[in-house]
């Protein structure tokens, strides 16, 4: 009896089990390849269509008027940077703060309400956020502005950042918190310098996800930042943004503008990937060797 219980592995495994095992493995491999294909297809297509139009003028000049060739999206690149900066100033601190509250104190009605609101906010179409910010900021200020665009994108970042922060903080084991409390460290200090620090890699991933998503949003900017054919560095004025510029150029009837739109899309993707990678490199350098 004992030898049979131990030796069940020495009996040949039935061919049906081996077949289903290989079939499932092949299925999983095919699925993962299919997941990669769209991303590479998009990127390759963008490179083919856009690379020819990217040059120094494209990166440094503002658009030329209709009919003139040349010009670029330099103002939109800078504008996207400024608007995303405003959005990050709003979305990241609010999102992380809310996430910390949810994870550390949020097992009550307020926490549930915040969690529910964040989930709903996450599901609201971005154009609706744009309309809301238009009526709150643009109408009150009586003009379009980069500030309004930043507010709209910032609002869109909050739920992603807060839920990611909450989930990452909840993954930090209680024993780590107790170790900090056991040293007589006050609760807010322990939360900031120990728990949040332990979870920082995951929190940063959440922030970058939110940032990348906001960077590509067009709809909330249509009637907030509005777009601008000229250089502008004033957050109180309408400002160009890459996705807006791509949108305007893509639906235009001019071939030259279509080419610029492709180039803009390629630049947008490269900038997003670049920003995410840069943040990863910089933050991972601060991490300790062997840290889990």
């Amino acid at each position: 009896m004992a030898s049979r219980a131990l030796g069940s592995g020495s009996q040949p495994i039935s061919w049906t089990r081996r077949l289903s095992n290989s079939a499932l493995t092949i299925f999983a491999v095919v699925c993962s390849i299919l997941v990669i294909v769209p991303l590479f297809a998009i990127f390759a297509y963008l490179v083919i269509k856009g690379i020819g139009s990217i040059n120094w003028a494209f990166l440094t000049q503002a658009p030329k008027p209709v009919g003139e060739t040349g010009g670029g999206m330099g103002n939109a690149i800078v504008g996207s940077g400024i608007i995303l900066g405003v959005a990050s100033l709003i979305g990241i601190p609010l999102g992380i703060g809310a996430g910390v509250y949810l994870a550390e104190y949020g097992r009550n009605w307020l926490g549930n309400a915040v969690r529910f609101t964040a989930d709903v906010l996450n599901g609201i179409p971005s154009i609706v956020v744009g309309i809301a910010v238009w009526s709150l900021v643009v109408v009150t200020q009586r003009h379009f502005s980069a500030l309004a665009g930043g507010v709209a994108l910032g609002i869109m970042m909050i739920p992603t950042v807060s839920r990611a922060t909450e989930e990452m903080l909840l993954l930090v084991p209680r024993t780590i918190r107790e170790a900090a409390w056991g040293l007589g460290i006050s609760q807010w200090r322990a939360t900031l310098s120990v728990t949040l620090k332990t979870a920082s890699a995951g929190v940063i991933t959440g922030v970058m996800l939110a940032f990348a998503r906001a960077a590509g949003e067009t709809a909330p900017l249509l009637f907030t930042a509005f777009g601008n054919q000229f250089w502008s560095f004033n957050v109180n004025q309408p400002m160009a943004a890459l996705p807006l510029q791509i949108f305007v150029y893509a639906i235009s009837p001019y071939d030259d503008w279509h080419r610029l739109a492709w180039a803009g899309a390629l630049v947008l993707i490269i900038l997003i990937v670049g920003a995410v990678t840069a943040v990863r490199v910089v933050t991972s350098r601060g991490m300790m060797k062997g840290a889990t």
């Binding site: 084991p173 024993t175 780590i176 107790e178 170790a179 900090a180 409390w181 056991g182 040293l183 007589g184 460290i185 006050s186 120990v194 620090k197 332990t198 920082s200 991490m287 300790m288 840290a291 889990t292």
Partner: peptide, 20 residues
């Protein structure tokens, strides 16, 4: 907080701060 500064604690499973 004051009490815990005077009464140190070592736990069952080693729990160093992993990122430090």
């Amino acid at each position: 907080v004051e009490v815990r500064r005077r009464v140190g604690m070592v736990f069952q499973k080693p729990n160093p701060f992993p990122t430090m």
